[in-house]
Design a protein around this nucleic acid. Sequence first.
DNA 1: CTGTTAGCGCATTCAG
DNA 2: CTGAATGCGCTAACAG
Lengths: 338, 338
Amino acid sequence: MPTIRDVAKLAGVSTATVSHVLNNSRTVLPETRQQVLHAIEQLNYRPSAIARSLTTNVTRTIAVLVADITNPFFASIVRGIEDRLEPHGLNLIVCNTDEQADREARYLELLLARRVDGLIIAPTGEAQTLFHEFASHRIPLVFIDRKPPHPHGPLVAVDNHAIGYAATNYLLRLGHRRIAILARKPMLSTVMGRLGGYRQAFIDHRLTVDESLIAITEHDLAAVANSARQLLASNQHPTAIIATNQIMSLGVLQAMQDRHLKCPDDISLICFDDNPWVALFTPPLTAVRQPVAELCDAAINTLQQALTHQRSKSVEKTILPDVLLKAELIQRASCKSI
Amino acid sequence: MPTIRDVAKLAGVSTATVSHVLNNSRTVLPETRQQVLHAIEQLNYRPSAIARSLTTNVTRTIAVLVADITNPFFASIVRGIEDRLEPHGLNLIVCNTDEQADREARYLELLLARRVDGLIIAPTGEAQTLFHEFASHRIPLVFIDRKPPHPHGPLVAVDNHAIGYAATNYLLRLGHRRIAILARKPMLSTVMGRLGGYRQAFIDHRLTVDESLIAITEHDLAAVANSARQLLASNQHPTAIIATNQIMSLGVLQAMQDRHLKCPDDISLICFDDNPWVALFTPPLTAVRQPVAELCDAAINTLQQALTHQRSKSVEKTILPDVLLKAELIQRASCKSI
DNA sequence: CTGTTAGCGCATTCAG
DNA sequence: CTGAATGCGCTAACAG
């Protein structure tokens, strides 16, 4: 590949001049500019982003780490972020942590070596000492959806407590009392919020929650389905279920299919998250919709703030505020009153 | 961030030695190695991938371009590729082309500047002169799922003709005659294959295809639903539909929901592609499953071949063979015989 | 077994 | 308005 020197030689100017027409960084005589441009075209020259990064200390790439890009919720987030980065000519490195802290750590290490400009991450939730490393090198970290034990950056997420409350309250008002809820690791910030809302709703209705209806399961379809089958098998089985993420939703649906239980006659169901298939079910499923576009906007926005702030070299670390958005309960036909 | 020189100084050795313990590239006295390692740890040193790339001319990053990461089929592909790259410490740049040739072009330009080591791409299908640029710089290009007009690299995909034939034939054998098929741009290699198989099946049954049942629509849910509604509204409406991708499937389902048509009593349906939701529908939907894991294996495999071949500096360009895998028709309950 | 040095491709002083 | 020279952090000869 041709280098800036080849261009300079062909155009009969110095490399400095080429660099400056490339970056519009100082005034160049229109005539010489043309010569440079012509040489560039002729050689099919493309500046090396690598070399540029080495000198400028800026890579123009940001990374996004998610648990599973196969989950439509995260896929939408990745897509949303990507959409907002492309116009700026920024590149996106996508990392799938698969909910494994060690894989997350390996990626963080890799991204540190790559000198990415910033990070948007839905963390596994395990403590991660490497986050500190980013912070100390002043590489902006924005947490999305979830928050680790010791966050070194702002969180952009939905008010999980509120939506957990809303979903439970909705079911409670429909007359349900035995409401099961399926979730993963209770330490996860999302789960804590949703479960907290669930509990609060019972409290506000002056009811006690039946702990046996809070099912904590592995993040694995078969395991969830199993768990759901057990729930449904008990003679005092729940009349409603809240599935707190896609895997949970699929697992419940699977279990219901196996047991030939129908929605909403046999059981009422609320799914996290909304996606195109959910609305086309018979019956259309009541679901929680998270405002993905807004989440992405907020994430990019706070990331950009952090970046500009960092560049201003002010030594004081300004703590950027968390952003909490509202999720929405889309009422369709999978819940009935009893 | 500390540099290799800081490490060398602290360890009391030359940068060369540090580099060599880092890369195991020559024998180092265990003692000095320990000193170096210790210095590295103490400084929290991380080699700059940027600087390394500049000298070695290798970035250890590959890019994947897809139309829409929100489509579970592409999401699985991205995930599959990512999974297979991570163990090698390779980074993945993900690009969403959104089926737009210009966006594709902008990305190709960006990736060229980034000096990525290789590319796996599901092209928009428009002619793209930039592909040639990759080829001429000997940057391996592997096409996945689809093929552009002038491919500059091997294709890894499913035998679309065969699966189009299989789906149509299945319906034909069930007694259907008015079989509609929904697809995007007929120039797309996937569509050409699937449509070709569809036609061939009719021919083999000594039937003529009703061209009005081949619906070409935009890649947009509303447009597809519209198209499907029209199909369903005609008094001679089809008894079966083949939806050739996720959007088409959603559109048909949407239209059927709007018209209160039931599957399979009112109409039989075959969906591309399979995904967890499809099997949980009532009734479970018959669908075409593409072997995503195998596609990813093949893509990575041929990419790696190209990479090693390229490094062997042999001037002759070996043309790597296309890989054609078999898709599978998963018979569930959305088709009935008439 | 280890050190010195040149250079990868660019941006950026500092002179002119 | 332009050019020469320096250095970003690292690897790779080449010496020793």
